[in-house]
């Protein structure tokens, strides 16, 4: 069995909002993710998925609890954490005036990928994601499908063992979404530990080895699909999700 790459214990995050007061976005979340595994965080909008993933990627500071990536603590060793992970979300944009090749080179460098291997690694990514014909074109000139491929290549160019995909298919058409899912499966095959958040049941069902159902900042259940089915006597993930979030059985 692969080793644990991401370890989350008692992770919590509180925000303060003048109109709503204290908002407990994430409460005592625990899970771990291993190599060659896609770990899904399934939840509605505002459930705490993105906040959890942002804490793991060191963009946000936890209010309580710990998270470790390859043993590096997100609070005390944030640079090492980020060096070992790639973060992809619908809100992480690309520089429009760089070419695809320049983008990959930039992110390899800022992620401290070895200088002597950067050029070959960039060409490898261009080859792997089928960007050859567009590698010299500026991002602003590319189609959304091509931009998405560059984004994935940008996420993995420094060969991180851990990848975070935060609702990556938001705004994509069906074909692009399927392409992305295929790429994620290939990355799992490469041995990456992948944290994948979504509110789309079919995606989670198709991709995730284990699924954590998150609601109001708390993880309500965490298991593989079979385990969740067995625990709830529900077949479809949608029904399982409703069971844990509302406490109701939709099959009745």
């Amino acid at each position: 069995m692969s080793t644990v790459q991401v370890e989350v214990q008692g992770l919590s995050k509180n925000f303060f909002d003048p109109s709503r007061g204290e908002v407990r976005a994430v409460q005592e979340v625990n899970f771990e993710c291993r190599g060659s595994e896609i770990f899904g965080l399934l939840g509605a909008n505002g459930a705490g998925k993105t906040t959890t993933l942002r804490m793991i990627s060191t963009v946000l500071q936890p209010t309580a609890g710990t998270a470790r990536v390859l043993g590096h603590d997100v609070v005390s060793d944030p640079v090492e954490v980020r060096r070992n992970l790639g973060f992809y979300s619908a809100s992480t944009a690309l520089y429009p005036r760089l070419t695809a090749r320049e983008t990959l080179t930039l992110f390899a460098r800022v992620n401290k990928y070895p200088a002597e291997r950067t050029r070959s690694r960039v060409e490898e990514m261009i080859e792997r994601f089928g960007l050859g014909d567009y590698a010299g074109a500026r991002i602003e000139k590319l189609s959304s499908g091509m931009k998405q491929k560059v984004s994935i290549a940008r996420t993995v160019v420094h060969d991180p063992p851990v990848l975070i995909f935060d609702e990556p298919t938001v705004g994509l058409d069906v074909l692009n979404a399927l392409d992305l899912q295929k790429a994620i499966q290939e990355l799992r095959a490469d041995g990456k530990a992948i944290l994948f958040s979504t509110h789309i049941m079919s995606e989670a069902e198709r991709l995730c080895d284990r699924i954590a159902i998150i609601d109001k900042g708390r993880i309500r259940a965490c298991d593989d699909l079979e385990g969740l089915r067995a625990a709830t006597s529900q077949h479809y993930l949608e029904d399982i999700f409703v069971h844990y979030v509302t406490g109701e059985d939709t099959t009745a």
Binding site: R82, P96, N111
Partner: peptide, 14 residues
């Protein structure tokens, strides 16, 4: 505004 700052903040650049 462009959304590239979050991309940058998730890299290994301190």
């Amino acid at each position: 505004e462009r959304g590239t700052l979050e991309t940058l903040l998730t890299t290994a650049a301190s």
